[in-house]
Design a protein around this nucleic acid. Structure first.
Lengths: 243, 243
DNA sequence: AAGCTAGGTGTACGGGGTACACTTGTCAAG
DNA sequence: CTTGACAAGTGTACCCCGTACACCTAGCTT
């Protein structure tokens, strides 16, 4: 019986199981509560046991990001650059939405692992074979910034009207009062917050269509890229234009 | 004499001094080594003393961000929306470059402090008075994402060719070998990395002109905004276009 | 049988944020 | 002058974290 238990508990625990457990834990409890100790607990093992499979927490996070990249669809082969990029970015975005910890993980990383480099490599390739110069591609990659990962620095994480001082579970009349205050002090913010989705009958315009926002910016950039590419943009010319 | 020392040491230590010291410490030692304990040390005080002036570390960070916002130039009064936004963003960027910790601080914050709201409020106002609909402004703000803070999710923090496995202080022939490996495995990355600034004679194209990159993306977006505004873009129309 | 090795353990260290009870210096009211 | 309230600073302690290091143990190789 002791042997049976051992057999169960001691399914070897390799690097892969560690990574999978880390992803699951982060999925369930969030990036901040992913600690080596909690992870070890989940795996029924003592914290230091993890260090036989990952060098340290940094490497664990790198591995998690790598596994995330593995979930991103490869580039579709016979598409023009624009839809290829678009599809890939939206696939990355879906992966990110499945794993809410990913944004923080990516932002915390200094990148440069092979998995990340491979992803960028193939991403860049799509532009180059799409007729972009290396020069323009360089700038384009910068402009995409985090968006190539499928996220944007979000400015409105929560429904507008929720500030540090107003918990979302306040009584309705308090919320209404809060809204008045907001409207008085931040008329512009309230104006744009309520401008969207007023068709849903919510006064405060709860949240907005993140997907639409994301695609809005993405397409704006893609269209811009296209225009530059067509007019043979180069950084040398841009530099002299500016001076 | 004891009294003199006391007089010096005991300059009251108010919230403002705490924040200033925190900013100075973060400027000097980086975001990661800003701890309540180190901060207390710097101020010649015991850690818990800080909690008489800030509720907790979160609030300290919020205060630091607020002070950062204070360094951003107010919008220039008689400019068209485009140059007003452009100038303001570039001013924000300058503030961020003075305070390297700021990006991490901002990313770690859930925002929504009055200082942040004020900043956004006035930012949005520039678009609205510039003839943008609330609808379009909403999307525009999303598209700007982190850029309104003066930073982008950077993909190339370090010179290309520096990976986790190759310290920048390796002997030259090792670096050359590394470069060959990179070029073999990541031809696209190397292509775009070396495409810029090859006029400076560096093989690896050390770094790139961050400012240029930033303005490239910013202007791409601003031009896109302008086009949409001129053609009377609305999200309703965009939604039906897509379906 | 001997010994090597991979995987798991136990203990311990230095760091972090902060709760809570405490002293101390200052100043106004009695 | 005393008193006592209050704000500012202190000391101790708790629980969390990542991880260095010495150790044990099972199983396989020689």
């Amino acid at each position: 019986m002791t042997q049976q238990l051992d057999a169960v508990r001691r399914t070897p625990l390799n690097r892969d199981r560690v990574l999978k457990a880390a992803v699951a834990l982060a999925d369930a409890s969030g990036f901040d509560s992913l600690s080596m100790r909690r992870l070890a607990d989940v795996l029924g093992v003592v914290p230091m046991a993890l260090y036989k499979h990952v060098a340290n927490k940094e490497e664990l996070l790198d591995g998690m990001v790598a596994s995330l990249i593995g979930e991103i669809d490869p580039p579709v082969p016979d598409a023009d650059w624009k839809s290829a990029v678009r599809l890939r970015v939206l696939s990355a975005r879906r992966a990110l939405q499945r794993h809410p910890w990913a944004r923080q993980a990516i932002e915390s990383r200094t990148n440069k692992t092979p998995a990340v480099l491979d992803y960028m490599e193939s991403f860049i390739g799509t532009f180059l074979t799409g007729g972009f110069t290396a020069d323009l591609t360089h700038h384009v990659m910068h402009a995409l910034g985090g968006r190539m990962w499928g996220f944007t620095q979000e400015l409105f994480d929560e429904p507008a009207g929720t500030t540090a001082e107003s918990p979302p579970d306040a009584p309705p009349e308090a919320q209404a009062a809060m809204f008045e205050q907001m409207a008085a002090r931040y008329p512009n913010i309230v104006a744009i917050a309520t401008s969207v989705r007023h068709d849903e009958g919510s006064v405060v315009g709860h949240g907005c269509d993140d997907q639409l926002e994301f695609e809005f910016a993405l397409d704006l950039l893609l269209d811009g890229f296209e225009r530059l590419r067509e007019q043979g943009w180069s950084s040398r010319q841009a530099r002299s234009d500016r001076s």
